[in-house]
Amino acid sequence: MAKISLQDIRHSYLSNPRLDVDFALKHIDIVFEDGGAYALLGPSGCGKTTLLGIVSGLVSPTSGRVLFDEDDVTDMDTIHRHIAQVFQFPVIYDTMTVFDNLAFPLRNRKIPETDVSSRVLEVAKMLDLEEGIHRRAASLTVDGKQKISLGRGLVREDVNVMMFDEPLTVIDQNMKWELRSKLKELHQNVRTTMIYVTHDQTEALTFADEVLAFKPVRQLPRLAFVLNMSDSVSRVSR
């Protein structure tokens, strides 16, 4: 667990950015407090996913610093940041069973098999995946698969932050509601920092303690704005 600070982050996908419009993210300064539930809300293409990538280390920012507590992790690779992420489409290991899927992150970290087993069963119970836990993961429905992706983050005890990148996009309408309450409940139980990216206001408001609304910065006319943090990110606290 850690407090996550983004300090003056700028990011561009171009190799030689000059103008403001070249940047997908400009001057982002945010602090995610330890144990908070945050939502990043904004239209497609406003840099939400990029921001997640910067926190997880999958994207390295053009400039600025990322701090976990007081440690500068800007140049640290993903595995050492101890983060978990759920993607838009469920990512599961098709040929493994549900159990092996959930155990995978633990086994990769050389955790003893007895601990793996108890931890996996605990998480499976939390997510209602106990039934058919030894079946092939590929046979599950899409919401079951998304639960597995979520579970692979929950099994690890060293997770600093869990991130969700529009995780309910492919889920049925009625299952959406259930999964959302599940997430909320999980957050109350495990108290890991969670960052939830979405373009759906309802999702953002039901999930998060704090919503960070992004403006579609790239769609603004070139000349009119010099954007700084207070322009591109506005906070709505409840």
């Binding site: 595995i79 992420q85 993607f87 489409f89 995978f104």
Partner: peptide, 14 residues
């Protein structure tokens, strides 16, 4: 999809 490689990285896969 790229997400598979990213998830594997996060899961610490060799």
């Amino acid at each position: 999809p790229e997400a598979y490689y990213q998830a594997a990285k996060i899961d610490g896969a060799s």
